[in-house]
Design a protein around this nucleic acid. Structure first.
Length: 111
DNA sequence: AGCTTGACTTTGA
DNA sequence: GTCAAAGCCAAGC
């Protein structure tokens, strides 16, 4: 079952992110096996615009910074969505990011 | 068929 | 501690 594109694989992982949790592009990339192609995850998110089931707002860079907020409809939409889930965001940065960090590899196990 | 882009990560100085 | 450059792979044109 590999008919799906790389993006869809990323979306699958992103959709697995629990509410109130966040993860990093690199973590997803590793979970898919593409260790250092974290850029591809970001690109997959770009394609995720047509995927309402993909909570891209839960995916941030390894610093916990909302790097992709600008790609949302509004620059504040990403931050607002995170706060709506109980995640505190300060200056585009997730508070307690380390505690809210969700590792997909723990769920997928490297598949 | 090939070159450019891209919401990142890591390593080096 | 911060700043700069290289690396990576897949989709788009």
């Amino acid at each position: 079952m590999k008919d799906i594109s790389f993006f869809e694989q990323v979306w699958e992982v992103v959709k697995l992110i629990p509410c109130g949790r966040v993860t990093s592009y690199g973590a997803i990339a590793r979970a898919l096996g593409s260790a250092q192609s974290s850029r591809m995850v970001g690109w997959a998110m770009n394609a995720a615009h047509g995927q309402p089931d993909v909570p891209a707002h839960r995916v941030v860079n390894r610093n916990g910074l909302l790097t992709g907020k600008m790609h949302f409809g509004a620059p504040d939409e990403m931050q607002r969505r995170l706060q709506a889930e109980g995640i505190k965001v300060k200056k585009d940065q997730i508070v307690h990011f380390e505690k809210l960090f969700w590792d997909p590899i723990k769920e997928i196990g490297g598949e």
